[in-house]
Design a protein around this nucleic acid. Sequence first.
DNA 1: CTGAAAGCGCTTACAG
DNA 2: CTGAAAGCGCTTACAG
Lengths: 358, 358
Amino acid sequence: MHVTGHTRGGKRPGIRDVATAAGVSYQTVSRVINDHPSVKPATRERVLATIQTLGFRRSATALALASGRTRSVTVLTANTTHYGYAATLQGVEEAARAAGYTVAIGVLESDTVADVRAEVRRAADTGGGLIVMAYDTAGVRALAAVPDELPVVGVVETPSRPPAGHRPWVWTDDREAARTATRHLLDLGHETVHYVAIPSSTRRTGQRTAGWRDALRAAGAPEPRPLAGSWDPAGGYQAGRRLARDPSVTAILCGNDDLALGVIRALHEAGRAIPGEVSVAGFDDAPHSAFLTPSLTTVRLDFTGLGRAAFGRLHGLLEEAEPVAPRPVSVPLLIVRESSGPPPAPLPPNPPSEVPRA
Amino acid sequence: MHVTGHTRGGKRPGIRDVATAAGVSYQTVSRVINDHPSVKPATRERVLATIQTLGFRRSATALALASGRTRSVTVLTANTTHYGYAATLQGVEEAARAAGYTVAIGVLESDTVADVRAEVRRAADTGGGLIVMAYDTAGVRALAAVPDELPVVGVVETPSRPPAGHRPWVWTDDREAARTATRHLLDLGHETVHYVAIPSSTRRTGQRTAGWRDALRAAGAPEPRPLAGSWDPAGGYQAGRRLARDPSVTAILCGNDDLALGVIRALHEAGRAIPGEVSVAGFDDAPHSAFLTPSLTTVRLDFTGLGRAAFGRLHGLLEEAEPVAPRPVSVPLLIVRESSGPPPAPLPPNPPSEVPRA
DNA sequence: CTGAAAGCGCTTACAG
DNA sequence: CTGAAAGCGCTTACAG
């Protein structure tokens, strides 16, 4: 089953084939396919009909070469399998498809400056715009390595300074999200909240860590040292084993849901009940988090919306649309599930000799 | 920080700029960048040096237009967030990057014939090769809608007939994998194994379902009706609720790990112990499956290897390399974890009046 | 081993 | 409203 109808000629019909078939110059065909206003309606109809019967499709590469603008965007990312990355990519793709753009993907496999630069170069060769996922070292370096003349938008952690106008950024309000989650745990009655961090994209403290700290300070709660985690359940598991040894730990916030999964596993192995003895909250609301046992309290972030916004900004950059004021894409939403609850009742100073009745 | 060094001229240098700077014709430059043998070593050196200093990078779109071959592959897929899809995509990307190919991605959002065709057309316009993830209806339809003249490789369920030479397919041996997992459960002593299926990509029975049935028949076990599932934990949860009501169910195989997650959640809510009362096994070995509680018994499939193989076939097709005999990409590996175990001891015919001693 | 010509399939000014 | 020219940055034959 063929998609196009031009089986006879051998190669696909070009603008000139359409022209001769329609009895006009190829010039006019170009005008029709570009929606140029000055074409007589009758002529336009005739050309359109010919395009239809010949199955003409304008060559994207010829268009790119002649016009100088490629209707494509390449997404540069260190990861494609983690939920946040994949969902953001999906958002970019949706928006790009709607706008008739092609989306390419470049994976930053190594984060050395040389490798990152090579990958940026490759992406630049494609000719279109760039969207860089700058959540990690590789991404941050890639964003920095993009030449000034290239249209690029960064998907970043909440920026501390406003981004420059010609290099828009998009972000979710991770700091506020972390504050919200931490407050939730504090409000439940926990004395403090421990934090297992995702790797920071820069040398500075990550936004999620900052938000967690904000909330602790605002509540006057002690500030334990955050545990360096990773992106994976395995990293959460390591951190969880350490935290499980400390009986004073009653609440743990994790930098993402995968870390939380590992932490929960470690606590479980150590025999600590969740949420009876320890509460755990995650970040992202990955699709499986609602089905875990216990189901995971977490903060939902709108990644596909973030991806759509990233493409929107890039599109504006490429087509000289009006610039939009940068702002976080959406408000994070706290989802309370089974993994968080009040802390265990403190041991009474003088243990009663009798078991209290229910 | 700039990636290229050509800040002065304004626009990026072309083949002609290099030629004049090196004192040769642009012809020779073309030969050098194409590794043509007949260039005097000294000349080659000089040109290479000039390319370096000028920061010349050959235009991919000009190359594509002039040569007719685009060094790009677009992956057509209905999904980017499920682990199997994402990991396969990653494999394609790895191999493509190593070969200097660009990878684009097209998402099949709807599976209606019209929408699928439109998406195939868009992908075809890009000009390169196609890799179609044909695990679902949209993918199968997309593969069918690809015009004959386009180089394409399908990533499919185990094919029942050998694929045609000019349209290679790659696959993992899902049927054998399902047999292995089912046998594992049967060997544990379960009378039979229930199955929660992923949606079939065609009207016929899926390969995983077929393998499960093979194993039951070989063992002479009863064949319960498979439960229609989905790709998501939510589908597994629905199926799990139904299975939880049937006390005779002691072993459940799921079409993927996400389904298994939902099934386990439902069993847990119904108060059925895993694996004490019911054993559950999944499919795929997603990254989180090892950290669930109980950790999930599953069959590991090499998705990134599958992606690399898919690109390898396409590359062969595009560069006229020698055709390779089609075969499954790798042998599935059973990973036994906590979610599977022997069935509960049968209730003794005459319950003893005393509690047996430990 | 190296150069001059034609062309890939379009678009962008320039004419009328 | 419509046509003829030049060119986007390369490659592919064709000459020497």
